[in-house]
Each structure stands twice: as structure tokens, then as C-alpha cells.
Design a protein around this nucleic acid. Structure first.
Lengths: 208, 208
DNA sequence: TCCGCTCTTGACCATCTGATCAAGAATTAA
DNA sequence: TTAATTCTTGATCAGATGGTCAAGAGCGGA
């Protein structure tokens, strides 16, 4: 009886290990220089592999980039997914803002990676934006609209409210350099930012 | 008497004309692909000049980029400069938000140009951010702090308030692709965005 | 018209960069 | 141990790209 070759070949220990190494290095490089501004050699050096060796795992530069985007996309949406129709509107949204701003603080590189991709017209994840992302946002916007209908939230366009939350929170990761330049020193930056945003947005959200 | 050669040579008609042509094309190209992602040839083709001819006016690619940034920077700050301590706080800030969002709508390319530059660490305009920009923001933050001290505005960190305004308004230019993907169709987009932001932010700003 | 200066361009160069390949080293399963 | 498979790399290539140069075309003042 011939040995059954698995249709989907199992990954070697070395394979998974090196792929992780490469993706970590790629995040480091792509988040700073963007797709076009990064070189395969740069990524290879960052993770200590030779260029041909790196290209053994990902045949094209673009493959690394796409894999990296897919690898981080779902984490990025998790907080919004958690928005619960059964919860208290202001508490749910406060929590969302808080989680979002902390995600930006703890993982600014992923934020900048997406910012770069979208700023350049989302050539790789355009379909994702129009599909899964739009679906999720529409779903959560409906929840918010429901809250507004019940008079538990100020009457605001739900989609634009979500944009406002995205914009304000990600600003601290994406435009980090500008924020630090203007503030002079980054001391206690994120705590103040968080409080200011919660106060500003949540007070703007109270029903009246 | 020898003819006095002007220390600063006057610009030829052709010179000014072509420089404008080049800067317009450069904005077109740089705002989409960023500095590294754009090629001199692309810019040259966009404005109908040959590559060497373009490089006759700007010797290096970087020179075009810097000239373009300087050319648009001051326009970009004008609305903030107009914030008037003598005016009514809520009206002044409403006006600022409105002007800012319209600027993003009417000149998204400039917005994306800056976004790109800052996202990549502001290698060219770092000094500008720490100098003139910081000075202006500090000055206007002081005005806002004054208003808060008089109890005419909610108690918010002025700097972070300004960041929130920047973030929300520029979002529509910088992440244009994502906004359109999520909304489906861009009809009446900006009007709704403007109303939502004014309502959200200004209500969050009311003193209590 | 004439002359000097500005403007324009085809040809060219050096470098960078994504990608390939063949051949050898390391690993794994039997 | 052995043989098959996976992994690694030096050498190399083709195309893209920023930038140069010399020579000619065009323009404007006298």
C-alpha cells in the first residue's frame, strides 16, 4: 500500500518557525517604509536569513506582504466584533474606544501597516474592505442605530461615528511622529489621550 | 556702467510655468504612491515633459518632493491660525472643524501627501513639526485652555482636542478608499460627515 | 538680425532590487 | 546507516530607476 501523501502537506518545524520569523521582520520593515519602500534584503537582514532563503518561504515580496496583512487583519477587527447590542450603549462604546486606543498603543506597527495600505488605495485588501469589513461595520452600525432609535444615544450617523472612533484612536499610532513633535515629550501621552477622547466622544454621545 | 546682474536671478516665464506644471504633477503622483513609490519618469509623463527636462528644473527627485511640501504646508495650517481668542469658543471650534473637513474634501491629495510623509517618520519635515507647527499648536492650545479656565468649554486637554479634530477631519481624505468601501456609495458623504462631526465634537465640548 | 542665454532631449551610466538556479548542507523517516 | 526530502546560499540576471552629459533647438534683448 503506497504511503498516502497528504493533499495539504504538513508544515515542518523549521518552516513554521521561519515563516513566523519572516512575518515579524516584515512587520518591522513594511510598517516603517511601506510596501514599495521596503526591500526583500532589508527584511532578510532583519530576521537573519539570506535573501534567497527568505524567497524560498515566500516566493514573491508581495506574498510576504499579503500574508502579513491577512495575519493581522482579524485581530484588528476583534474589538468592534465585541460590540454588544445587549449592553449599555455608552458603556459599550466607551469600552470600544478604550480597547481601540490601547490596541494602537500596543501594536502601532500593525496600525501603520494598514494605514499605509489604505492610503495607497488598498491595492491588496480592497476586496476585504468592501466585503467582510463593510459587513461587520454595517452590522454594528445597525446596533448603534437601534440604540439611537430607543433614545439611548444622541442622534448621530452610526457609520460616521465609527469612522470618528477609528480616526481618533488610530491617529496616535499612525501619526505618532507628529504627535510627539507637537507635544514635545511623550510623557503620560496615552493616558491623557484616552481620557480626553472618552470625555469628548462619550459626552457627545449622550442622548438629549 | 556694467549691467547689474540681479543677485537673485529673475525667473523666466517658461521657468515659473514649468515649475508649476511639475509641482501639480508631483502632487498627483506623490499623493498616491508616496515618495519612494513614485518615479521621476511618472511625474515627467504626467506633466508631459521629458525626464531630463524635468530634472533641469529640479535636480533631484527629493527636491521636487520638498518643494511640494513647502508649497502646501502653509495653506494647510491657515485654518488653525484663524482660531480667534476673541470669538465664541464653540463657534470658533465649529468653524475650524467645518473649514478643516472642507479642506480635506477639496484637497485630499495634499492631505494624503502629508499623511504619507508623517507616516514614514516625517524625514523631510521633522523640523517643521517640532518648530513652527508645535509653536502654532501651543499658541492655540493656550487659547483653548483660556476658554476652559473661563468655564466656557468642557475641561479637555487642548492638545488632544486639536489632535481629535485633525484625526476626524483628515480621515476622510487619507482613508478615502476605506470610507467609500464601507459606505458603499459616496453620495452625500461629506455633508453627513460634517454634520456628524460637528454634532459629536461640539456637544462633547459644551461646558457643564 | 545677431548673440548669448535658456531650454530640451536622446543616449547613456551606475546602482538597486526582485527573482532564479544549481549545487551543496542539514534534517528526517525508515 | 541510508536515502529522500527539505533547507540554504553564492552567483547571477533582467529590468527599473535616479541621475548625467553633450549637443542642438528655441527665445529674448539690443
Amino acid at each position: 500500500m503506497p504511503k498516502a501523501r497528504p493533499a495539504i502537506p504538513r508544515k515542518t518545524r523549521i518552516q513554521t518557525q521561519n515563516e513566523e520569523l519572516i512575518l515579524a521582520a516584515a512587520l518591522e520593515v513594511f510598517s516603517v517604509h511601506g510596501f514599495r519602500g521596503s526591500t526583500v534584503d532589508q527584511i532578510a537582514r532583519t530576521c537573519g536569513l539570506s535573501k534567497p532563503n527568505l524567497l524560498y518561504y515566500f516566493r514573491r515580496k508581495e506574498d510576504i506582504y499579503v500574508a502579513l496583512l491577512e495575519h493581522t487583519l482579524s485581530d484588528w477587527l476583534e474589538p468592534l466584533r465585541a460590540l454588544d447590542a445587549a449592553g449599555d450603549p455608552l458603556e459599550e462604546l466607551s469600552r470600544y474606544i478604550r480597547v481601540k486606543i490601547r490596541l494602537s498603543r500596543d501594536n502601532p506597527k500593525a496600525s501603520r501597516l494598514f494605514a499605509n495600505e489604505i492610503l495607497h488605495g488598498a491595492p491588496m485588501i480592497g476586496k476585504f474592505l468592501k466585503g467582510p469589513l463593510k459587513d461587520l461595520v454595517d452590522e454594528k452600525a445597525a446596533i448603534i442605530a437601534g440604540w439611537i432609535g430607543e433614545g439611548r444615544l444622541a442622534a448621530l450617523d452610526p457609520h460616521h461615528l465609527i469612522f470618528a472612533i477609528w480616526a481618533t484612536t488610530q491617529h496616535y499610532a499612525d501619526f505618532d511622529v507628529q504627535v510627539n513633535a507637537v507635544l514635545g515629550s511623550p510623557q503620560g501621552l496615552m493616558a491623557t489621550a484616552e481620557n480626553t477622547l472618552i470625555t469628548l466622544l462619550v459626552d457627545g454621545l449622550r442622548p438629549r
